[in-house]
């Protein structure tokens, strides 16, 4: 669960229609972002709903670095105002979904960064970003041998010989 702290008005500028949020990353960077941009995050939306019940203004502490958070904000900014099926399955589409080729370029990062982004997206409940990251990871290992997959993912073969050749594993590939 995120830690919610009270902040004074000067920390979070903005009022009314262009409300601003203060997001605090794990490396204690304060990032001010328009609420509208982050509305794609169900987690943030729920937090904001909670704020409205109180008169206080809040900052949202998030358990990932500012570098990752900025990437997520970049994604949300790019798709601001767009309808994405994963995020708004019940909403009537006001227009076309944008071409998702942009995602491929956006996610052209190293493995560890990609894993951090997908975890952050999962935490923030941004389904479209989780889906794009999952596709990117799947693309990384598609068509590879098991050994190559392990190398790409940075994992070891931790099966015992018996597990590797057990009858049940015959149906696992």
């Amino acid at each position: 669960m995120p830690t919610i702290v009270s902040v004074d008005d000067s920390t979070v500028p903005g009022e009314g229609s262009s409300r601003l949020l203060l997001l605090v990353s794990s490396d204690n960077k304060h990032i001010v972002v328009e609420e509208d941009i982050m509305s794609r995050s169900r987690f943030i939306s729920k937090q904001v709903e909670g704020f409205e019940a109180t008169s206080q203004r809040h900052a949202i502490l998030l358990p990932f670095s500012s570098f990752v958070l900025n990437k997520v904000i970049e994604y949300c900014s790019h798709y601001r105002g767009y309808y994405l099926l994963e995020d708004d399955p019940d909403a009537a589409p006001p227009g076309r979904s944008p071409v998702r080729e942009w995602d491929q370029e956006f996610l052209d990062v190293d493995r560890n960064m990609l894993l951090r982004i997908i975890k952050a997206a999962h935490y923030l409940e941004i389904k479209s970003l989780v889906g794009s990251c999952a596709r990117a990871i799947a693309d990384m290992i598609r068509g590879k041998t098991t050994e190559e997959m392990r190398e790409i993912l940075g994992v070891e073969n931790d099966f015992t010989p018996e597990e590797e050749h057990s009858p049940s594993s015959k149906c696992t590939g």
Binding site: R111, L115, H122, A134, L153, G154, V155, E156, D158
Partner: peptide, 24 residues
């Protein structure tokens, strides 16, 4: 095998939540 499993437990790819792994 046990040692590799311990090592894997720290690998970022294997620390993903189950939901994400299923998504992949």
């Amino acid at each position: 095998s046990s040692l590799r499993r311990q090592k894997n437990a720290r690998a970022p790819a294997l620390r993903l939540p189950v939901e994400i792994v299923l998504n992949i």
